[in-house]
Design a protein around this nucleic acid. Structure first.
Length: 152
DNA sequence: GCCAACGTTGGC
DNA sequence: GCCAACGTTGGC
């Protein structure tokens, strides 16, 4: 059982979008970074805990709790020429980009990035490290438990 | 819109 | 393999 923080731009897929999706589940399309892809492909398991994070918006921060709902499979948007996420070097035979399904379990209050930065318990979070831009980052059990307490 | 930080590309 | 140039992320 592992834990993750996954960023989504609310203008693309917000927590409300995911909440109202069938089975409260969305396919995590659009990851185009190898490290983030490798986390999904190599390390994520069904049932892993997910902190749903809003990025590139007025109030960035954690807005919900979710879980990994599938193993990794090819992200179909890489094959779609009209998609913003199209990758001409990817083929059906040798897909380059993978994704998992994510199921929302609970909408929470906003735990903002600014607030997280004030919490010593979270100072080691990958998310908060200088220059960290990864859209999917691992979260320790201690960080997960502490954050769940803040959100309760 | 700015810009720091990081990732990718491609010539050599 | 090096590294300069360019592109992207994402907070502010």
């Amino acid at each position: 059982m592992r834990y993750w923080l996954m960023k989504s731009e609310p203008s693309e897929v917000s927590i409300d979008d995911a909440w109202s999706a069938p089975k409260r589940t969305v396919a995590w399309t659009g990851v185009r970074n190898y490290q983030a892809r490798n986390f999904m492909r190599d390390t994520m398991q069904v049932g892993d805990g997910v902190l749903f994070y809003h990025s590139s918006c007025a109030e960035p921060g954690i807005v919900g709790l979710a879980e990994v709902a599938s193993t990794a499979y090819p992200d179909h948007t890489q094959f779609e020429p009209d998609s913003h996420y199209y990758d001409p070097k990817a083929t059906q035979e040798t897909p380059r980009w993978m994704m998992v399904d994510v199921r929302i379990k609970k909408k929470t209050r906003l735990l903002s990035l600014a607030e997280m930065r004030t919490m010593p318990e979270l100072s080691g979070m990958v998310l908060l490290q200088r220059g960290s831009r990864l859209s999917i980052t691992p979260v320790t059990a201690d960080e997960w438990n502490f954050i769940c307490k803040q959100l309760a």
